[in-house]
Amino acid sequence: MALLELREIRKSFKMGGGDLEVLHGVSLLIEKGEFVAMMGPSGSGKSTTMNILGCLDVPTSGDYLLEGKDVATLDNDELATIRNRMIGFVFQGFNLLPRTSALANVEMPMLYSGVGARERRRRAREALDRMGLGDRMNHDPSRLSGGQQQRVAIARGIVNRAPILMADEPTGNLDTKTSDEIMKLFQDLNVNEGITIVLVTHEADVAAYARRILRFRDGIIIDDEINARVRGADAV
């Protein structure tokens, strides 16, 4: 049983008068422990696919099986629980709460899973330490660099021990050097923690860190290949 399975997923959005279909039947299997990059130009459907995989959005038709369970049968609260326990998110714009310390930001997912204050604090510190931010815990996002903010976001994504991490253009707002640091962190989490990573990017350099690359164009997957030359693999 695959960890994530999409079968003939279609998704349309209401646009002006009619419906605009952006996914025209996407099917894919992602196994536990994979590091998958979804590539393609803007509007190709890669982000929409990731939002569906992340239970942030629902398909118009088709089936999505998460650990073999049909997601369409779940209600909003159950979807929230899946986002809370199974999936961590990292966004291009970081999406941290403003005027809220790095520590409090990282603690937030545990707030919604009922983890006690002391345990929350401990695990948030641990995750931030893991991201090399041990000395920035009480800083507000506004006082952190882009790379640091993204590492806070990654810490938030892994703190609740979610087995899947989804990243939508995580390096889009970062310079090349910082991008490489962030990508190495993903690689490290994938190899050493066994976290399944689904990454959306339009940069080949970034996608090169993944072991499998899916190429999207016009709402379908046009190519699905194993990355023979994984970048930085020797370093991990």
Binding site: G54, L56, N76, D77, A80, T81, R83, N84, R85, F89, N95, L96, L97, M108, P109, Y112, S113, R156, N160
Partner: peptide, 16 residues
Amino acid sequence: TREIGIRMAVGAKSGD
């Protein structure tokens, strides 16, 4: 709205 989105993305239920 964005804060609400972030909270929902990390697992806040509608009730929360």
